[in-house]
């Protein structure tokens, strides 16, 4: 196994947000400010790395039938730990992230990596995979957060970009979140020279993809 590629694939080629479309809820919700994007990314990376390592260690002990509930409980434990850390050390960030801090538990990036990578690979690879995916998530959140903060509030990481710019409130609103996210993915399309065609960018890597596809068709999975 090539450890270097395991680490770097999450950054760009298989970026969880921009290419695999995982974790869209926090991506849209917390990115009104670049700082919140960084905080959310860091918290998620921590949970992702820890849960990947623990699940990889326990992969031979967790019975297959109850693996999903077991993964969720492990993840929820680390999420509780992170919210304690943030509440005591970064109370402002804790307030800004709000309910989405607890919702890291059901972020499909984490469950997806647990299901698709950590439960099949060794500890070192799972650690690097979690770190790479987490950093890719963080980079995407900072990118979207920075665009929305500059256009919507006229600041960059809290620093004013000058009086000449009149902030456009739309970009801070929920509607602006959808709009910027859509435009960033369109940009990924162009920059990748359409190699990431609409087939590759999509829900295919979501742990729920097959269930979701069946739901769309209205067929019972079995």
């Amino acid at each position: 196994m090539n450890y270097f590629r395991t680490f770097t694939k999450g950054l760009i080629k298989e970026n969880p947000v921009l290419v695999m479309l995982l974790g869209t809820c926090p991506t849209l919700a917390v990115t009104t400010l670049a700082m919140n994007g960084l905080g959310m990314g860091a918290a998620t990376t921590f949970v992702l790395v820890c849960s990947n390592v623990v699940i990889s260690l326990l992969k031979n002990f967790i019975p297959k039938q109850v693996r999903l509930p077991s993964f969720i409980v492990i993840i929820a434990g680390f999420v509780t730990f992170v919210s304690f850390m943030l509440r005591s050390n970064f109370p402002e960030l804790y307030e800004a992230l709000g309910v989405f801090l607890s919702l890291i538990t059901v972020n499909c990036i984490i469950l997806g990596r647990a299901e698709m990578f950590a439960s099949k690979n060794n500890v070192r690879a799972s650690f690097l995979d979690g770190l790479g995916m987490g950093l890719g998530f963080t980079l995407a959140l900072i990118l979207i957060g920075a665009i929305r903060e500059v256009l919507g509030s006229g600041t960059f990481f809290g620093l004013s970009i000058g009086d000449w710019f009149q902030p456009i409130g739309f970009f801070s609103s929920p509607a602006g979140g959808f709009f910027v996210f859509g435009c960033v993915i369109a940009l990924v399309n162009v920059l990748s020279n359409y190699k990431m065609s609409s087939k590759k960018i999509g829900c295919a890597s979501c742990p729920n993809a097959s269930a979701c596809g069946q739901a769309e068709k209205g067929e019972i999975a079995e």
């Binding site: 959808f178 859509g182 435009c183 993915i185 399309n189 162009v190 960018i201």
Partner: peptide, 12 residues
């Protein structure tokens, strides 16, 4: 437009 086909258009 080609760049917006699929997910980007859905998000907009």
């Amino acid at each position: 437009p080609k760049a917006f086909k699929g997910i980007p258009a859905t998000l907009v």
